[in-house]
């Protein structure tokens, strides 16, 4: 420890100053906490949505806010399972949109959502490669042998779907990495770290020219369905239901389809 600098009056001021700072902090902390809580006014709708909806949902919210003046929609995007954990932990949310039905069922089983979940979008799997396709991949077939393939882990929805689709097509996949979310698969391919990846068609749409997309046979038989429901204990159940209705309306579907989502 360095020696304390000599003080003008000969007394080291650190202890008193420290106590003062601690006291100030103790006074400030509750104020800061309540400050956060009071921002959550009654006309703010909090929507917990799967990470794959990060781009589509704010666009939908724009239309919803126009139809419902005075209501502001706020989002928390995360993996569907994380969101269920947060809801179970008492997170303040009004609407929950999951990327798959299994995870939504977990929320239903724990009585975290009130309404019967409604499917509002679908998604299918595609194969992506870097734009120059350095591994010369031709599809979900033997061309993947010895190449670096990245897929989602079977424990998560996209990985489960990948496994089912590979079985349907009679292919055994030998991935170099099984990621927990589809974003990591996209990242591995766009950086050129992987030769190919299996992702949702919406992810391929979002990645644009950074990837080359190859359709997978029978992908229409392994369809991923997105359910949405109002959250139990929402202090704004009316607005929450209105948002669910808007997402499933033609206006909501039009936005979703522009991002590559299929109709329910």
């Amino acid at each position: 420890m360095p020696a304390l600098p000599p003080h003008a009056n000969g007394r080291p001021p650190s202890a008193r100053r420290l106590a003062g700072m601690l006291g100030a902090l103790a006074l400030l902390a509750p104020a800061a906490l309540t400050g956060c809580a009071s921002q959550q006014s009654s006309d703010t709708l909090v929507v917990f949505a799967a990470a794959s909806l990060t781009q589509a949902f704010p666009r939908i919210a724009q239309g919803f806010e126009k139809d419902h003046p005075g209501v502001t929609v706020k989002f928390s995007f995360d993996g569907s399972s994380s969101l269920v954990d947060q809801l179970a932990g008492g997170a303040d949310a009004d609407v929950f949109a999951s990327a798959d039905q299994v995870t939504m069922q977990r929320a239903v089983d724990q009585k975290l959502v009130t309404s019967t979940p409604r499917v509002f979008a679908t998604n299918v799997l595609v194969l992506i490669t870097p734009p120059d396709n350095p591994g010369h991949i031709t599809g979900l077939n033997a061309s993947l042998a010895g190449r670096r393939l990245v897929v989602c882990a079977p424990q998560v929805p996209c990985g489960d779907a990948t496994l089912k689709l590979a079985r349907l097509d009679g292919v055994t996949l030998k991935p170099v990495s099984q990621t927990t979310n589809v974003t990591d698969v996209v990242g591995a391919v766009t950086t050129g770290e992987a030769d190919a990846g299996v992702v949702y068609t919406t992810d391929a749409t979002a990645a644009g020219s950074k990837v080359r997309t190859i359709a997978i046979p029978h992908s229409d038989q392994v369809v991923n369905r997105y359910p949405i429901a109002t959250v139990a204990g929402s202090s704004r159940p009316g607005e929450a239901q209105a948002f669910v209705d808007y997402v499933t309306s033609p206006a909501g579907r039009a936005v979703l389809s522009s991002y590559g989502f299929g109709a329910p």
Binding site: D85, A153, Q155, S177, Q178, T180, D184
Partner: peptide, 27 residues
């Protein structure tokens, strides 16, 4: 680790990565 090395059982999936994956199915 997750970002740079990926996640594959026995090769790159260390205990924290396994915990993260396990949470997807059962907290």
């Amino acid at each position: 680790t997750l970002t740079f090395a990926g996640s594959l059982q026995g090769t790159t999936r260390t205990l924290p990565l396994q915990i993260y994956l396990q949470r997807e199915t059962d907290t």
